[in-house]
Structures are given as C-alpha cells and as structure tokens.
Simulated scan of single mutants.
Amino acid sequence: MSTIKKIQLGQNGPLVSKLGLGCMRMSSIWGGSAPDEKESITTINEALDHGINFLNTGDFYGAGHNEMLIGKAIKGRRDDAFISVKFGAIFHNGQWLGMDLRPIAIKNFINYSLTRLGIETIDLYQASRMDGSVPVEDIIGTVADLITEGKVRHLGVSEINADQLRKANSIYPISALEIGYSLADRQIEQELLPTAKELGINVIAFANTAEGLLSGDLKAPLAENDYRNHFSRFQGNNLVRNLEKVEILKQLAKNKGCSPTQLAIAWVKAQGDDIMPLVSMSRRSRLPENIAAMNIEFTPEEMKILNTTFATGAIQGGTYLQR
C-alpha cells in the first residue's frame, strides 16, 4: 500500500517519500529506557507499507541502538527503505561531549554503521553538524571517497549555514540538507533555504512542532523536570506569550477538523516540493494522523493567518536551533 507522494532527492537523485520517518525517539538519547522495541520495529514496517521509505537515524542515537533497531526492521526488505545516517556527534553516559569529524573518525564510523544496520551501502550519509574543527573540504572529501568505495550512495549535510552549504556543494554535489524548520523556527528562510533552492538541494525539515510548542498540548509552566526548561522559549513570560500564538493555530485546526500538530506538519509540507517534513515517531498509532497531515491544503487566507501570526521572530526566546 503506497499513500505518500514521492519527491526526487537532489537534482538527479532517487525518489523518496515526501514524508520522512525520524527514528531518534525509538532509542534512549539522553539516558533512561528506550521505547518498546517490538512496537518501534512494527512502526517502521507499517511506515514502509504506506510508502514512507525515508528512514532517518544517527550513529550516536542510543550509542548505536537505533541503527541496530532499523537493521532488524528492514531485514528482508532492504529495497523498500532509504536509509539516512548522521555521524560525528560524540555522547558518553547520555552527555554530549562534542564532535569528531576527522577523516579517520568518519572512516571508522561508517564501518560500524554498516555493520549495525546489516547493509552494504548507506543511502544518505551526512555530518550531523559542522563546528569548524575540521575543514569542510576534509569532511566532504572523505564522504565523497566513501561514495567511490561504494559504502555511501548520496552525500548530505545537516545544521550548517548558507556559506558552508555553498562551499560543500562546490566540493561534491549535496543531495539533501537536514535542518530544523517550523512555523516557530523560520530563520532558514533568510539565507539557507534560498541557497538550498538555488543549488537544487532538498531540505529535510525536522522539529516541525518546535519541540512540542505547536502541538497544542503545552501549558505554562512546564514541569520542573521537563528538558525544555533549558530553552528560553519555554521559560516564564516567553512561554505564556508563545502559547497565545499557538491558540490561533489551535482554532484554525479546529475549524479544519484536524490537530495543531497536523497543521504544523502540513505547513512545512506546503513550503515546496523540495521540502520533506521529517516526523519522529515510535508508535504505529501516530502514523495515520501524520500521513493524513500530508493531504491538508490551505486557502490563501489561512496561509496568510499562519504566516502573519508566526512571522520570523514572532516566537520569543530561542532553542538549540538558534546558534
């Protein structure tokens, strides 16, 4: 059963689903127990059954657990899945230590990823961030070598700026840019998004609900142990004012007979055929709602309301997306 539209990745790349499945939440990232593995595997397989073939992971998600999980899920149906892997981030005991983007490290990372996934080639391989510690030429050149070796099919980048994107693409054609993008986080519209469009690079947009801000479920203040308390967007009066804007999203969703989360995903989808909403799920029960969001259309007036209410800078306070 295929219900999801396909888009071409890059200028001459393969067809992938317009909706991507983010697998991060199927593993423990910041410590604690992982979700039910059987349910996660079932979720991946049902996503594939519906034509969602873009599976996104990172070799550091759950210290390799996420890749092993995906490997189990796609066993016997490798051709149904397009595997996107990020590398470079170093975690220890649930704590982020930094980046390792040295060529020797990348050549080490790729072999572990291939083994955990149980595959011979990764479809899209990308540095999870470029922090200036290693020249862009070395990072891109190393992945290009992996493509020549047959270990990688397409090169991607993640969480970089417009100048870095342009430089990376001049070294080797970039197929996709993974970046946070939502009604609440529109800063990439100024330089990065136009650059990607100019270069023919697809955008894989994560954090469509802005860490749950646009879900319509949040209330101020957050619980003391909520990780989002670290971000100024979710603190004090900032959160109160931001949730006032979310009320407009909730009303529009009510009028259209859908959820605020669906509207947030649909807005990202509507920004262009070259933009893919990447939605994290760990339960199959989330699939019908998120798939249905891809069929939501906006009238010009509805789009005007959303773009005015959530204009760039309208949401007060920042998150890790603002660096």
Rank of each mutant, 00 (worst) to 15 (best):
residue 77 R to I: 12
residue 36 D to T: 04
residue 66 N to E: 05
residue 142 T to G: 02
residue 193 L to V: 02
residue 300 P to F: 13
residue 236 G to Y: 11
residue 271 Q to S: 09
residue 278 L to N: 10
residue 281 M to F: 12
residue 45 N to P: 04
residue 85 V to L: 13
residue 196 A to T: 02
residue 304 K to W: 07
residue 109 F to E: 14
residue 185 D to K: 01
residue 49 D to C: 01
residue 233 R to C: 13
residue 122 I to G: 11
residue 187 Q to F: 12
residue 290 N to M: 11
residue 99 M to C: 03
residue 72 K to Q: 15
residue 72 K to T: 01
residue 164 Q to R: 02
residue 213 L to C: 04
residue 159 E to T: 03
residue 42 T to K: 15
residue 178 E to G: 01
residue 311 A to T: 08
residue 169 N to E: 05
residue 124 L to G: 00
residue 262 Q to R: 08
residue 286 R to A: 14
residue 308 T to V: 03
residue 194 P to I: 00
residue 10 G to E: 08
residue 177 L to W: 04
residue 68 M to G: 14
residue 120 E to L: 01
residue 32 G to V: 09
residue 60 F to L: 03
residue 118 G to T: 04
residue 151 K to S: 14
residue 317 G to H: 03
residue 194 P to A: 03
residue 155 L to P: 00
residue 98 G to T: 06
residue 174 I to D: 00
residue 84 S to D: 11
residue 312 T to G: 06
residue 97 L to D: 01
residue 21 L to C: 07
residue 185 D to H: 10
residue 46 E to F: 08
residue 69 L to Y: 09
residue 252 L to G: 00
residue 205 A to F: 08
residue 148 T to P: 03
residue 64 G to R: 06
residue 278 L to C: 11
residue 215 S to I: 01
residue 27 S to Q: 07
residue 294 M to K: 08
residue 98 G to Q: 04
residue 173 P to W: 06
residue 10 G to F: 10
residue 20 G to Y: 14
residue 251 Q to S: 11
residue 150 G to K: 05
residue 70 I to V: 13
residue 315 I to Q: 10
residue 119 I to Q: 06
residue 122 I to N: 12
residue 1 M to L: 13
residue 171 I to N: 09
residue 30 W to V: 04
residue 284 R to N: 10
residue 159 E to H: 01
residue 51 G to A: 07
residue 172 Y to A: 15
residue 79 D to Y: 09
residue 88 G to R: 03
residue 221 P to Q: 07
residue 210 A to K: 02
residue 33 S to V: 11
residue 102 R to I: 09
residue 23 C to K: 02
residue 263 L to W: 05
residue 185 D to G: 00
residue 76 G to E: 08
residue 222 L to W: 11
residue 223 A to L: 13
residue 141 G to W: 01
residue 150 G to I: 09
residue 163 D to M: 08
residue 219 K to A: 15
residue 310 F to Y: 07
residue 206 F to L: 05
residue 207 A to E: 11
residue 107 K to L: 14
residue 197 K to C: 04
residue 85 V to R: 00
residue 74 I to N: 05
residue 73 A to C: 06
residue 211 E to H: 14
residue 85 V to D: 15
residue 151 K to N: 07
residue 88 G to M: 09
residue 3 T to R: 14
residue 276 M to V: 15
residue 123 D to V: 08
residue 76 G to C: 09
residue 259 S to A: 08
residue 272 G to M: 10
residue 68 M to H: 01
residue 26 M to W: 13
residue 120 E to V: 00
residue 47 A to Y: 12
